[in-house]
Nucleic acid binder design. Structure first.
Length: 215
DNA sequence: CGTCTGATTGTCT
DNA sequence: GACAATCAGACGG
């Protein structure tokens, strides 16, 4: 695909914006999955109350955010979901990938999603509306949905170097100009005071593949 | 559209 | 023991 990759020497906020338009690639036994980043959030470091490194905490969970820029940080949330981040230059900082536009092996992504549903939501009735969305924009339009779709798990991907891994890497997509980028508050941040108000969520305005965050 | 709720478990804010 | 960077369905307007 396009030019090599993102420059990981830039700071967290710039990285969050620069990752928009880049293509995340994931090699699995069944094939290579690809999706373009359309939504990110910056977690800028230990001074950021919403960040898992807040207060300088350096625990087993968030270790990846203290590793080399470009290290994958995957953590479990709400018991049943995972989220995927890439560490940035600053100690304890990273960019949460919140949504992808599926590009390659989309059917395999859908199979991952429905397999997960079978396991964790066996009793749920699946509406026709949801089925239809799974066919188009709702395959990877959320931080945990994209992990399921792309087979990004803590056990396989946490602490992988995205600049050197054969399991996960970035390819150049298209250049997203500042004018195309919308900003908002980060999603799901409740007890972080002023840090919950900052506009550290970035997404491609025109993309139908961004998450359904209401805000 | 909105607000609410159940599902599920690793982590320690 | 309480909470959490989520998700999808249910229900009310």
């Amino acid at each position: 695909m396009g030019p090599p990759s993102v420059d990981f020497s830039m700071d967290c906020v710039d990285l969050a914006k620069k990752l928009l338009g880049q293509v995340v690639c994931r090699r699995t036994q069944q094939g290579i999955l690809k999706g373009m980043v359309v939504e990110t959030e910056a977690y800028v470091g230990p001074h950021d109350k919403a960040c898992h490194s807040y207060g300088g905490r350096h625990t087993a969970r968030n270790e990846a955010m203290y590793m080399k820029p470009g290290t994958c940080y995957v953590y479990t949330i709400y018991g049943m979901y995972q989220c995927f981040n890439i560490s940035s230059r600053e100690d304890g900082a990273g960019v949460l990938i919140r949504a992808l536009e599926p590009l390659q092996n989309i059917d395999l992504m859908r199979r991952h999603r429905s397999g997960y549903r079978d396991r964790y939501r066996r009793n749920a009735k699946i509406s026709a509306k949801a089925e239809q969305k799974m066919r188009d924009t709702a395959v990877a339009n959320g931080p945990s949905k994209l992990c399921i779709a792309m087979a990004i798990t803590k056990s396989e991907i946490n602490k992988e170097d995205i600049l050197a891994s054969s399991k996960i890497w970035l390819e150049g997509g298209r250049d997203v100009g500042e004018a195309e980028i919308a900003k908002s508050k980060r999603v799901g941040i409740n007890n972080a005071g002023i840090w919950g108000e900052k506009l550290l969520r970035f997404y491609i305005k025109s993309s139908p593949f961004v998450s359904n965050a209401r805000r």
